[in-house]
């Protein structure tokens, strides 16, 4: 593709549910996956992103545009990421982390992983199970054995007897 000087190149991205999105190339290449496609010359038409649905892709593009508009200032970028993720529920975060992984966007991947980890921080095992819908398939004996094995991590943590 002969890049025209002066006019910013726009890419068209297609989600796995066939939604089309226009995005500036300069923002889209935050994704290493997309950058590689552009460099390989496959970005002429529509770039299909088979692992990302339209809702998630829209959100990722908002992020791409937002973060690429910020000049090289790590603190401002960080506060943008924090704000961007602040109102996302876990469902969205899970979609986002999968999309960031597929699109190979390390900065978003790191921010979303940290956000999910933050949800688990300083919470009891029972709370984390409920929050994420994790089913406890240990027998009480098995669970007690695992706890005993790592008993130092349970020092001073409230016990929850409601598994």
């Amino acid at each position: 593709m002969a890049a025209e000087t002066g006019t910013p190149t726009t890419l068209t991205l297609k989600s796995n549910d066939d939604e089309l999105f226009s995005v500036a190339e300069s923002a889209a290449i935050l994704s290493v996956t997309i950058r590689n496609m552009v460099e390989d010359g496959c970005a002429g038409g529509v770039i299909p992103l088979d692992n990302v649905d339209g809702k998630t892709l829209a959100s990722v593009i908002t992020y791409m545009n937002g973060i690429s508009a910020i000049p090289a200032d790590e603190e401002k970028k960080k506060s943008y990421r924090d704000k961007f993720l602040s109102d996302k529920d876990f469902e969205t975060l899970a979609d986002m982390v999968l999309a960031a992984n597929y699109l190979n966007m390390s900065c978003l991947m790191d921010a979303v992983s940290a956000k999910i980890a933050q949800v688990m921080e300083k919470k009891s095992v029972g709370w984390v199970r409920r929050k994420f819908g994790i089913e406890n398939d240990y027998t009480p004996e098995e669970e007690a054995a695992v706890k005993e094995e790592h008993k130092w991590t349970f020092e001073g943590v409230e016990t929850d007897d409601d598994n």
Partner: peptide, 20 residues
């Protein structure tokens, strides 16, 4: 693993009790 990276050592070990 990337998510667990952000937890403290005791918190990450404690996840072993969540489920098998």
């Amino acid at each position: 693993q990337q998510i667990l990276y952000h937890l403290s050592q005791d918190e990450v070990v404690r996840t072993s009790v969540l489920s098998k």
